[in-house]
Simulated scan of single mutants.
Amino acid sequence: MTDMTGKFFWYELMTSDPQAALTFYGDVVGWTSKPFGDALNGGTYHVLSGSAGEMGGVMAIPAEARDCGMTPWWGGYIGSADVDRDAERLVAAGGTLMRAPEDIPDVGRFAVMRDPGGAVFMLLKGSSPDAMAAPTPMATGHVGWHELYSGDFDADLAFYTGALGWAKGDAMDMGDMGSYQLVSQSGGSDFASMSGGIMPRPKEMPMPAWLFYFTVGDIDAAVDRVTAGGGTILNGPMEVPGGAWIIQASDPQGAMFALVGSKDAA
């Protein structure tokens, strides 16, 4: 089993229409799902599984969050050995505590954080003593890349590499868009260890946010499934270093997501 402390390991969609989202992503990404107890808003929580096991969930936007203007979005959970202590430590490093640590029955203890630039993520310590097994790289239906559209590039880079212990890889010059800094959540510095990137928030992004790239097979076939299901392609397909192909898209309820795959030979 892999220690997920300091790493993204669970991904959650809060949406206005959970059933429609389950149908859409089940077709686009290939996830299977099953209900799990009651979500915090009293509705059913659906656990998602990719080819290597459980990786996330789907739930309705809680009423209080909806009343405050929350729209559908994907959030990520970072593993914590002590949520209360880590929340205090991350606040001292420049983060903001958005929701104080609390317990979820039969799940674990969590807190909602915001990095110095304004992007939101969650901390979670599961109630099970067993650690999750990390999926193999580019396992279908799992997250193959993590990308931060940063509201404060220098502060966020220092936050994640300092307080969370991530390692820096190469930085790529994107011209007017600034620098794209590769990062490794596992601490490795070689290209194979890189699990994501941090870049300044482009003007097209309404707010700082993490974007998660779900792994599919042929990217062109995935594009067809996105549009057939009522989603919108925002960018791509585009080839990236290493030979993979990516798209950014929004689902029918408006949540932004991304896919990473390949170009299958004809």
Rank of each mutant, 00 (worst) to 15 (best):
F153W: 09
Y160E: 01
V120L: 15
M132C: 06
M138E: 09
H142Y: 08
G126W: 04
L124R: 02
G165W: 00
A119W: 06
G126T: 11
M138K: 05
M132G: 04
M122K: 07
K168Y: 01
G165E: 06
M132Y: 04
G118C: 10
V112C: 06
F110Q: 06
T136P: 00
M132P: 03
G118W: 08
T161K: 10
D152L: 10
A133D: 08
P135K: 01
F110C: 05
G141A: 04
M122H: 07
A134M: 11
L148F: 14
A119Q: 10
M138S: 04
G118Y: 11
H146N: 15
A119Y: 14
G169P: 05
S127K: 01
R109D: 09
F121C: 14
D115G: 05
G169K: 08
D154H: 02
S127R: 01
D170A: 15
K168Q: 15
A155F: 01
L157Y: 02
H142E: 12
G126A: 03
A155E: 07
F121M: 05
A163S: 15
M122P: 00
A111F: 11
T136E: 15
V112Y: 03
W145M: 04
P135H: 01
V143P: 00
A167G: 07
A111P: 00
P135M: 02
T140P: 00
A171E: 13
G151Y: 10
E147F: 05
S127N: 12
M138H: 13
H142Q: 12
D170S: 10
A133H: 10
D170L: 08
T161S: 09
T161W: 08
A139D: 14
P135N: 03
A131K: 09
A171Y: 01
F110D: 01
A167Q: 03
D156Q: 12
F153I: 03
T140G: 08
G144A: 02
G144W: 02
W166Y: 08
S127V: 03
